[in-house]
Computed example of a mutant assay.
Amino acid sequence: MHEVSLGATLRDYLTGQDVDHTTYEDLRQALARLLVEELGHPRELVEPRVRVRFDVVPDAADASPSLAPSSTEAPQAFEGTDRPDTPPVSLALPVSPDSGDPGDSEDSDDHDEGCRVVDLTLRDDDGTPLCIVLFCPGAPGSYARESVAAARLFPGGPAPLVAVTDTRDALLMAAVDGAVLGEGMRALPKRDALRRLAADHPCPQLTPERAAGERRILGAYTAFLKRCCGEDVCLL
């Protein structure tokens, strides 16, 4: 099942604003609540719906030398291309048994061809991105490569960490090399652990050449998502 609007709005947990109620928005809202109430991330430092553009000319920051490894081998999490159409039905909390993208009715530009929307961004006290969190309607491993590209291209970043989750399973990865740091919902780190992990896995600015390559990767995956079932209906 692809993401479609339900023709209504709901109140965003983080901002208090009305957002489009889609077939997956309840799950995104539950994920935001988990990050704040269970994992201890300050609500004001969890930002929803940040655009990562892949059709822009690289800025001056892209000219900084890249220290990231240039290995051509993708980590295991990048394997696989199947993306099930069956949506998840529950949110598995990592610490309690009870526990870019669309969905912002105020920002119709979320669906333009030149960007991918990151669902949630966990920021440090000074506003720098520590980790981006992307909801995926399918196996997290099949969304790993594009999510790492989004982290490397993240505005004001790169973001050193990236988490991909369907709210039943999750991958936590380092943006610098795509290495999998944890699997399962318990891999989503609490506040203090997140800051330590980000410090342990810094991601330098990309060279212009590598930034261009990451934009092509992110653009290709995003184009696939948007064209899979008709852009007039699908909100992916």
Rank of each mutant, 00 (worst) to 15 (best):
M1A: 10
V4T: 15
L6R: 12
L6G: 05
L10A: 05
R11T: 15
Y13E: 10
G16R: 06
Q17A: 13
Q17R: 15
D20M: 03
H21V: 05
T22V: 05
Y24N: 10
Y24P: 01
Q29M: 12
A30N: 12
L31P: 09
R33I: 03
R33Q: 14
L34K: 09
L34P: 05
L35G: 14
V36L: 06
E37A: 11
E38N: 11
L39A: 08
P42V: 03
L45G: 00
V46S: 02
V46K: 05
P48N: 09
R49M: 06
R51Y: 02
R51P: 12
R53Y: 14
F54L: 02
V56H: 11
P58D: 04
D59N: 14
A61V: 14
D62K: 01
A63C: 09
L67K: 03
P69R: 03
S71H: 11
E73F: 05
A77L: 00
E79W: 09
T86E: 11
P87R: 15
S90P: 02
A92F: 09
L93P: 15
P94N: 10
V95A: 12
V95N: 13
P97T: 08
P97S: 14
S99M: 09
D101K: 13
G103P: 04
D104H: 10
E106G: 10
E106N: 12
D110Q: 15
H111V: 07
H111Y: 09
E113V: 14
C115V: 14
C115F: 00
V117F: 00
L120Q: 13
T121W: 00
T121G: 04
D124C: 06
D125Q: 14
D125E: 13
T128S: 15
T128L: 05
P129D: 01
L130S: 06
L130M: 12
I132D: 01
V133C: 11
V133I: 15
V133Y: 03
L134A: 11
F135I: 07
P137C: 10
P140D: 04
P140V: 03
E146K: 10
S147G: 04
V148G: 08
A150G: 07
A150E: 13
A151R: 06
L153S: 10
G157V: 06
G157S: 07
L161C: 03
D166Y: 01
T167W: 00
T167C: 15
R168G: 02
L172T: 13
M173H: 08
M173V: 08
A175I: 01
V176K: 01
G178W: 05
G178E: 06
L181D: 04
G182I: 09
M185F: 01
M185K: 06
A187W: 04
A187K: 06
L188F: 00
K190H: 10
D192V: 15
D192H: 13
D192L: 13
R195E: 14
R196H: 11
R196D: 15
A198I: 12
A199M: 04
A199F: 00
H201L: 00
P202R: 07
P202C: 00
P204W: 05
T207L: 08
R210Y: 00
A211N: 09
A211T: 11
I217M: 02
A220H: 11
A220L: 12
Y221V: 01
T222I: 02
A223E: 09
C228E: 12
C228V: 13
E231Y: 00
E231G: 09
D232K: 12
V233F: 02
V233P: 00
V233I: 14
L235T: 05
L236E: 07
